[in-house]
């Protein structure tokens, strides 16, 4: 992998955008890399725009705050693009050359001429995954869409191994210690846990979801 990979995740509040970033950062640290993770600095409200950022590197990471120039962009909900529910417009603003975009949508979204031209000029690679549908089908709750997105991510990058991701997931939901990204994510964690009768079930279903997501992601030629 390149020395530094900066990732921007955009979605709607309650989708687990912040949680996904924290799990990915933990997985990176478990893989012996360095990472910093932070959310967009706003009042988090469910269905309002939410953004989080992950930096992964083999060297010390000094930069703080929002990732303005991402190597990877993950879009957790079509409305980020179609309704402009985003803090960053257009959704690929700042994307670096050869950058990757992963979008959660049941079918490719209509991009206009200019958008396609800009993405082509960057040699960007665009992927789609129906993460919400997979989450509902396999984990039985759309709260797991973020896990499907992480599964999709590891299918098209070698940032972290699946094992590291699973360990980070177990740490997040399995431990007795509260994993705090923010007060509201802590509350949603409790909701998520209540959807699974047993913690083991939560883990098993989410691991199955990661597997399914890996094989379901599809590249869309720009």
């Amino acid at each position: 992998m390149q020395a530094k990979t900066f990732i921007r995740m955009s979605g709607l509040g309650g989708q687990g955008v912040v949680t996904a970033a924290h799990i990915l950062g933990s997985a990176a640290v478990r893989s012996g890399l360095l990472s910093t993770v932070n959310p967009f600095f706003g009042a988090e409200k469910r269905l309002a725009p939410a953004e989080s950022y992950v930096r992964i590197s083999s060297q010390t990471i000094h930069e703080r705050g929002e990732v303005l120039f991402p190597d990877i962009i993950m879009i957790f909900h079509p409305h980020v693009i179609t309704l402009g529910k985003s803090y960053t417009m257009p959704f690929f603003d700042g994307l670096q050359k050869q950058g990757k975009i992963i979008i959660n949508a049941p079918e490719p979204l209509p991009l206009n001429e200019s958008e396609r031209a800009q993405l082509a000029a960057l040699n960007a690679r665009l992927y789609y995954i129906s993460a919400t549908r997979l989450a509902l089908e396999i984990a039985g709750t759309e709260l797991s869409s973020n896990i499907a997105m992480l599964g999709a991510l590891i299918a098209v990058t070698d940032l972290v191994s699946q094992q590291a991701l699973e360990e980070a997931l177990a740490e997040r939901f399995g431990g007795t210690k509260k994993f705090v990204a923010s007060g509201t994510t802590a509350a949603l964690d409790d909701v998520l846990k209540s959807k699974f009768t047993k913690l083991a079930q939560l883990m098993d279903k989410n691991i199955a979801l990661i597997e399914q997501a890996k094989s379901s992601i599809q590249e869309h030629v720009i």
Partner: peptide, 12 residues
């Protein structure tokens, strides 16, 4: 400490 940049950033 700078709000969010430190409080909400996960780091080693």
């Amino acid at each position: 400490a700078d709000g969010f940049f430190v409080t909400h950033t996960r780091d080693e």
